[in-house]
Design a protein around this nucleic acid. Structure first.
Length: 179
DNA sequence: AAGACGATCCTG
DNA sequence: AGGATCGTCTTT
């Protein structure tokens, strides 16, 4: 192995599918501090530190979109973890999610905040998301991926935002994580 | 074909 | 407190 190759190995910090194909709550916690990398295509590449996440844990979790069943919108959550799930909310904002686990457990993590852009709608706007990101592979994408960074150990856990319709016990699950 | 509504944000 | 704004799903 040449020195050059070793240097490339060390520098390549992109998270692979196996990072996402784990327990969803664990992934949501581990994503805090990680870097979302966005290549805007005009020679501009920005890195954003993740500050807030929420776990949506499969079909039995009535707050999770996959609980409505397998539809055109939720289909990607029934695929293997490591893909992007975006959807339009209130006709205005594209929300960013990373699919976790596998087809047996259609789950995802909602990215609610990145440094400088607090709130899922605002970060979607900053990252210039649109429907074309639906199903993007985080392991091979040339415009949006996640890189490893120092983990955040001291984080808070609270109930998830805006999912009162789900009822108990889901509204009370402390599956929102932030710094 | 029509209606309801949402994992939000901004303004007043 | 309310408006913007539209894709998706449910109901007729």
């Amino acid at each position: 192995m040449t020195n050059c190759y070793i240097r490339i190995m060390i520098k390549n910090k992109r998270l692979k599918a196996d990072f996402f194909q784990r327990d969803t709550v664990t992934v949501a916690q581990d994503l805090l501090g990680k870097l979302i990398v966005r290549d805007f295509g005009n020679g501009e590449i920005k890195h954003y530190r993740i500050t807030e996440t929420e776990a949506y844990c499969g079909q039995e979790d009535l707050a999770c979109h996959s609980s409505k069943g397998r539809t055109k919108r939720t289909e990607i959550m029934f695929q293997d973890g490591g893909h992007i799930y975006v959807y339009l909310i209130y006709g205005m904002y594209w929300l960013l999610n990373f699919v976790t686990e596998n087809e047996e457990n259609a789950s995802a993590v909602l990215i609610r905040g990145i440094e400088g852009f607090d709130g899922p709608g605002k970060l979607g706007r900053e990252l210039q998301l649109d429907r074309s990101f639906y199903g993007e592979n985080l392991e091979t994408s040339t415009r949006l991926w996640v890189e490893d960074s120092e983990p955040i150990v001291n984080f808070k856990s609270t109930p998830r935002i805006g999912i009162d319709y789900a009822g108990e016990p889901w509204v009370s699950k402390r599956w929102r994580f932030c710094t």
